[in-house]
């Protein structure tokens, strides 16, 4: 019997076409010289990437962290130090800052992995606070007032904005492609096994600890790189802003509303987030109250999120990571 393992869906094949068109449009955007729109897209990609990272941690690895803002801050400050103090090209410094964040993630993991569940969450937050306070007390990093990125001053504003935009596009596309490939790979299969059942996957030979550690480090890299991108865009960093719990609040909202444990979910969630922000711009804290309430309701009634509702209804998958087994004939496996 030939067992056919189906890995793509009609929707994904259609979606691939749409994605290519979308990316082409984004690449063409700078020709319109709409700097405002470009900045919004950079912000969008930044939040989307943060959400994808948090989704990877919580939705796939079962690691519920409320301390990812540590890596946003570390990435941002690493950018400042690399570009201004060490003379590295500021655009090259962005992924390098991600590496710096990952370096800090190792000792952090050594500490917080001693916890699990709810206490793990608080532990990650405690560590983020430690980083914030350490930086806020360091003179060379600007203490509480923070720093400004000077390395970009020689550049014309248009050049800087274009380069930032290009970097953001690269980050956005790379992240989605990388996560997609990872989840489709054997490693990704192992990860999803861990999410579904740690004991079962362990008994099948999946190294649970190393899998979780790997995901934690990857997420730190993605978050740190995004943090650097954010502050490349904003140019000004301070500890309270860079290590703010709001980064986590926004990403949690995005992922929960959009759909935890799916690749499409964070995209949907980020769109909703930006729409709500535009609509409620004048309402200050009511905006956050609404976000919080929506997240609570979603978690209680609709844990699969908006995208999950779509999947349940129409079985659409643009980023199929499942392996659907259809059996006919004799046992030889063919994947398509």
């Amino acid at each position: 019997m030939t067992v056919i393992v189906e890995r793509t869906t009609p929707a994904s094949r259609a979606g691939a076409v749409v994605a290519v068109l979308l990316i082409a449009a984004l690449i063409a955007l700078p020709w319109t010289r709409d700097a405002g729109l470009m900045r919004v897209i950079v912000e969008f990609i930044a939040l989307l990437t943060l959400a994808q990272m948090w989704n990877l941690l919580a939705g796939y690895a079962g690691l519920v962290s409320i301390g990812q803002q540590a890596y946003v801050g570390l990435g941002g400050y690493a950018l400042m130090v690399l570009a201004d103090d060490l003379g590295v090209n500021p655009f090259l410094a962005v992924p390098l800052a991600g590496l710096v964040a990952t370096a800090f993630a190792l000792p952090t993991a050594a500490l917080v992995f001693r916890f699990s569940g709810g206490y793990f969450a608080v532990g990650t937050w405690a560590v983020a606070e430690v980083y914030r306070l350490l930086i806020a007390n360091t003179g060379a990093l600007g203490r509480g007032t923070g720093r400004t990125l000077k390395a970009v001053f020689p550049l014309a504003r248009e050049t800087r904005e274009l380069a930032t935009y290009a970097l953001a596009l690269a980050l956005g596309v790379t992240t989605i492609v990388a996560i997609y490939l990872y989840l489709r790979s054997r490693l990704g299969l192992g990860l999803m096994a861990v999410r579904d059942s740690e004991p079962a996957s362990q008994s099948l030979g999946v190294d649970v600890f190393r899998t979780k550690l790997a995901v934690y480090l990857i997420a730190a890299f993605g978050t740190g790189t995004t943090g650097a991108l954010i502050y490349l865009n904003l140019l000004r960093i301070s500890p309270d802003a860079a290590f703010s719990i709001n980064w986590t609040a926004y990403t949690i909202f995005i992922v929960v509303i959009g759909g935890l444990g799916t690749l499409e979910g964070p995209i949907v969630g980020t769109v909703v987030f930006f729409l709500l922000r535009e609509l409620l711009a004048d309402y200050g804290s009511w905006y956050m109250i609404l976000l919080g309430t929506l997240a609570v309701v979603a978690m209680m009634r609709y844990p699969q999120g908006l995208w999950g509702l779509v999947v349940d209804r129409w079985d659409l998958r643009f980023f199929p990571v499942q392996r659907l087994v259809r059996g006919v004939g004799n046992v030889s496996v063919r994947e398509r």
């Binding site: 409320i66 709810g118 609040a249 949690i252 956050m288 997240a295 978690m299």
Partner: peptide, 23 residues
């Protein structure tokens, strides 16, 4: 239902309470 819902709901409550107090 595992720890995720409880963590996220109480986190959401935290945001709501803080902003409610602010308002």
């Amino acid at each position: 239902r595992g720890i995720l819902p409880a963590v996220l709901v109480t986190f959401g409550l935290s945001i709501v309470i803080q902003n409610g107090l602010l308002e």
